[in-house]
């Protein structure tokens, strides 16, 4: 009798406690957002020495892919008006891989590319000579009144063109290539092999004064 009583008082109904804990856990799991640092990486050019004029860069017009965005967020790509940026990355890939007038190194680079990329080489004389340094350059110029969103959209498409070329060279998808961290030698090697010989030559011009303050 005495023993029975003791057992009764000892037992507290704690069966639903786990459910409550779970509910709380799931609630907080769903509602918390961990701030992630994702974005588009850009390397700014080094600062200019006021005493020295910027170095003269001699580039042929055919080697520059001009993208202008005006204060109304309208696009002028290579002298042509564009409504949206959808086709931009394809045009860019054609421009970068044109191989109009390749030198010896560029020919070697061309031969190292997979067939799908080699097919893009139109060898047109009014597009870029070769994608190596000193060759194709993508120039983005905005106004001060251009919206940041539009600028980022254009930059995004330019990056996309380059990343898709890099990824195709090493046989990955663009998403996989961008996820490479370079932490271990195998990933490092893939990253380098993708980029080798095709530097990301994106020139972001100083915006001019129109439409802003």
């Amino acid at each position: 009798m005495a023993r029975k009583k003791g057992r009764l008082t000892q037992e507290v109904n704690a069966g639903s406690m786990a459910d409550i804990a779970f509910l709380l856990l799931i609630f907080f799991l769903v509602t918390t957002t961990i701030a992630s640092d994702k974005g588009i990486l850009n390397i700014l050019p080094p600062k200019q020495d006021p005493n020295q004029p910027p170095p003269e860069v001699l580039l042929n017009e055919r080697n520059i892919f001009n993208i202008l965005v005006n204060a109304n967020d309208q696009l002028l790509v290579e002298g042509e008006y564009l409504d949206n940026t959808e086709k931009l990355s394809e045009d860019l890939k054609d421009f970068i891989l044109n191989f109009g007038a390749p030198d010896e190194d560029a020919v070697a680079l061309f031969n190292s590319l997979p067939a799908s990329l080699r097919n893009r080489a139109k060898r047109s004389s009014d597009s870029s000579d070769h994608p190596m340094s000193g060759g194709a350059v993508v120039s983005i110029k905005t106004n001060r009144g251009t919206s940041y969103e539009r600028y980022l959209e254009v930059l995004d498409q330019v990056k996309r063109a380059y990343f898709e070329i890099y990824a195709e060279r090493v046989g990955l998808t663009s998403d996989q290539y961008r996820a490479l961290t370079g932490k271990n030698p195998a990933e490092r090697e893939l990253l380098d092999r993708g980029k080798e010989g095709i530097p990301m030559a994106i020139s972001i011009a100083e915006p001019d004064k129109i439409g802003g303050n």
Binding site: D37, K38, G39, I40, L41, N42, I43, L44, P45, P46, K47, Q48, L152, L155, D156
Partner: peptide, 12 residues
């Protein structure tokens, strides 16, 4: 650029 912090990430 003046401050020589040239790595820039446009958060998106």
């Amino acid at each position: 650029r003046e401050a020589d912090a040239r790595k820039l990430l446009y958060a998106a």
